[in-house]
């Protein structure tokens, strides 16, 4: 019974693994073929939409919001720091990073720009410890753990 319950708890496992695979594939193809990378990225998003699964913000930010190309700074995207407000002062000493500084990520394909604030105090909700409801170990890992235990007992 317990195993059945645990299986049910991890809903959408297939979709998650598929999305994970597509994201990795998109990252892989980003350098060589942009059409495919964008297609995989979009498919990854669409599966999430269809199955109503949430993508982690860190992962989501690596796909272009507009054309869903995998953004790798230097290959498919430009990353630069922009400081708001006192522009002239900051341009002289660019090494300073304060609350006004933000990262600007530009997609090279469609030219979509996104700004992220650099604020060390700000945290995602997901980074808090309270947000973790329960942790699920996938069966394969369980088997690995069991196997390692067995091997240890054999050695002793």
């Amino acid at each position: 019974m317990s195993s059945k319950k645990q299986q049910n708890a991890f809903q959408g496992k297939e979709c998650f693994s598929r999305m994970n695979f597509l994201f990795q594939a998109s990252m892989l193809m980003a350098g060589s073929n942009k059409t495919l990378a964008a297609y995989y990225g979009e498919l990854c998003k669409n599966i999430g939409k269809k199955a109503v699964l949430k993508i982690d913000p860190d992962v989501k930010r690596q796909l272009c919001k507009r054309c869903s190309l995998a953004l790798q700074p230097g290959i498919t995207a430009d990353l630069e720091t922009v400081s708001q407000g006192k522009r002239r002062k900051c341009s002289k000493n660019t090494q300073n990073v304060d609350e006004n500084t933000s990262l600007k990520l530009t997609c090279q394909q469609c030219g979509f720009k996104r700004k992220y604030l650099v604020n060390s105090e700000y945290k995602f909700w997901l980074e808090n410890k309270e947000s973790v409801m329960e942790t699920i170990t996938v069966e394969q890992e369980k088997q690995k753990i069991i196997r390692s235990k067995e091997s240890k007992t054999l050695e002793t």
């Binding site: 964008a38 054309c67 469609c110």
Partner: peptide, 21 residues
Amino acid sequence: STLTRREYARLGLHTLPTRQM
């Protein structure tokens, strides 16, 4: 933030050339 299909096509995201890969 959304691309229209026309813009999508203009970026060349529909085309997959047969002999380049």
